[in-house]
Structure formats: structure tokens, C-alpha cells
Design a protein around this nucleic acid. Structure first.
Length: 285
DNA sequence: GTCCATGTTCTTTA
DNA sequence: CTAAAGAACATGGA
């Protein structure tokens, strides 16, 4: 579930609940969710006060009062919630931080694609990540896309290109920008890159305003589901009429992932030129 | 039983 | 050698 809007929503709901609190107990129920493998997480957390909660890409970064840091990655099914210690511990809960009588922080993740990553005080929390899409300038995006011959959809899913997009919001952004997912990243026109840059921000901001998309597992730190799934235009809408032109939304598999788009609104530039020729209309400027 | 799933990383191929 | 495609990871729901 967790792409940038979901992770941002977890961070903003989590922050006021845990910043300033002292970790009075650590219960690590599965050690293999901690990375790197050898780190003794409980001893690094016990007795520490939480100083900050931030987001970088899809990483939830937690800073302690001794400058030690770790991040939680939610993978596909991860949840990070603040609950009463009295509340039943659900299956697949892997880590619990106790703050006292009133609250505890629980990390659960059935598929275990996520994890808890200790990074210490000095190493870079953003290693392997490209820039934040909400700060991205069209020229930055253009430079990055120009470096690869992959399909633009695959390039945008690569966290080293831009950090935070996933399968849902890439499809939504490409639709908003009217760019075909199979278009080669390095062959987009400057105008298409500009539209794509704006579309990414628009789609992400709108999803954040609606507290992220809940399709199945996603919830914020208070256990609340998001509403942004109601705004999806193409994701999960195979066969439904395009909101813009009415053509059926198509689903293809790209890089092993479902990819949804409108074949009429998101025509590849080359195909669009050919169709104009066939229909005898004058070519555009 | 089958297929599918909001992600990342390791392996194989070109 | 590098870039890109594919497989693998683990669990649950339709």
C-alpha cells in the first residue's frame, strides 16, 4: 500500500503521538525484520527518547535523542500504529516499542517485504534514493529520464530515479500527463516531461490530502484508512470507461506489474502522428 | 487448486 | 563491462 502519500500520512499521524516519548520497553518478536542482520536493535532503542519522525521516499525515518536513527519500510503490507498496550496483538506483529501505560508503537507486516533498518547517527538516510518528487524541477526530471532507454513507467518506479512513486501513482501520473507507459523515458519531448512533472505533483498532493489510498492493508498511525483510492482514474479500472474520453481503460503487464492506461488519451507520439496521417488531418505544429 | 497484490533485491540475459 | 528484464521473497484474499 505504501507509496509516498501513504507513508507521508503515517508520518504526520505518527509524529505527534511519539515524539518526545521515552522507549521504556522493546519487544522484538521476529529478529529477521531488522537490518542489517547483526544489529542489536533493542539495546539501541531501550531508554532513548524519540526526537523526530520524518519521511524520505518511502522510508519512515525515526531519530533518537542520542542521534541514533533507523527507518521503517512498510513494504507491501506493513503497518505502523500507536495503540493501547491493552489492545490485542494482531498476528504478524514483529516489533513493539512500549512508551508506558498509555501507548505503544507496533510494527506488523504479514508479507514481511518491509523491515526496520538501523542507520546510526552518521550514514545517509537517503542512500540509493533519487530526489523527492514534490521538490522536483522539470529539468531535473528530464535529465534523469534522458539517461535510460527503459519504458517511462519502469523508470518512474525506480527509486533511484525519483523516490516515493509506486505502481498506483505512476499509472495515475502518466494518465494525468497523457503519456503512454511504454514510451521510452529518453524519448519524451520536453513538453511531455513538463506535463509529467506537474502530473506527479498533482496526483501525489491530491492523494496526501485524502490521507492515502487504502486498497487492503494500509492504515495510518491511528489505524484509520485513507480515501484517496476513490480518486483513482485508471489504477484498478481495467475495462471501465476513461473519465476523459470514454474509451475502455486497458491493462497490460509491464515489468511484472499491472499497468493501467487509456489507449486513446495516452497515445505514443509516433502512433499519434501515424493516426493523423491515416485520417488525413493536418499534422500539429 | 489458480491468480493476483500499494515493493525491493538478487540473478540472469542481452 | 553495463543496462534491463525476470525471478524471488511471503502471506492472504478472491
Amino acid at each position: 500500500m505504501p507509496e509516498l502519500p501513504e507513508v507521508q500520512t503515517v508520518v504526520t499521524t505518527l509524529r505527534p503521538l511519539i515524539v518526545g516519548r521515552v522507549i521504556a520497553g522493546v519487544n522484538l518478536l521476529r529478529t529477521d525484520i531488522v537490518r542489517p542482520g547483526g544489529v542489536d536493535l533493542p539495546s539501541r532503542l531501550l531508554g532513548r527518547r524519540i526526537r523526530a519522525v520524518d519521511r524520505r521516499g518511502k522510508r519512515i525515518l525515526i531519530t533518537l535523542d542520542d542521534r541514533g536513527r533507523f527507518y521503517v519500510h512498510l513494504g507491501m503490507t506493513g503497518q505502523l500504529t500507536v495503540e493501547s498496550p491493552e489492545a490485542a496483538v494482531r498476528p504478524h506483529t514483529h516489533l513493539v516499542l512500549e512508551f508506558g501505560e498509555s501507548a505503544c508503537l507496533r510494527f506488523r507486516d504479514p508479507r514481511r517485504f518491509g523491515g526496520v533498518f538501523w542507520i546510526g547517527a552518521d550514514s545517509d538516510a537517503a542512500t540509493g534514493l533519487g530526489p523527492e518528487p514534490l521538490d522536483l524541477k522539470p529539468s531535473d526530471l528530464a535529465t534523469r529520464l534522458a539517461k535510460t532507454r527503459r519504458a517511462v513507467k519502469n523508470a518512474l518506479l525506480d527509486q533511484r530515479v525519483v523516490a516515493g512513486l509506486g505502481n498506483i501513482y505512476v499509472d495515475e501520473a502518466l494518465f494525468e500527463a497523457r503519456v503512454h507507459p511504454l514510451a521510452l523515458a529518453c524519448e519524451l519531448t520536453p513538453e511531455e516531461v513538463r506535463r509529467l512533472n506537474s502530473a506527479i505533483k498533482k496526483v501525489l498532493r491530491r492523494a496526501i490530502r485524502h490521507r492515502g489510498s487504502t486498497l487492503r492493508d494500509y492504515m495510518d498511525a491511528e489505524g484509520a484508512a485513507g480515501e484517496a483510492q476513490k480518486l483513482h482514474r485508471v489504477y484498478g479500472s481495467e475495462g471501465k470507461p476513461c473519465r476523459s474520453c470514454g474509451s475502455p481503460v486497458q491493462r497490460i503487464v509491464l515489468g511484472g506489474r499491472s499497468t493501467h492506461f487509456c489507449p486513446s488519451c495516452q497515445m505514443r507520439a509516433r502512433v499519434r502522428r501515424a493516426k493523423r496521417r491515416l485520417s488525413g488531418r493536418a499534422p500539429g505544429p
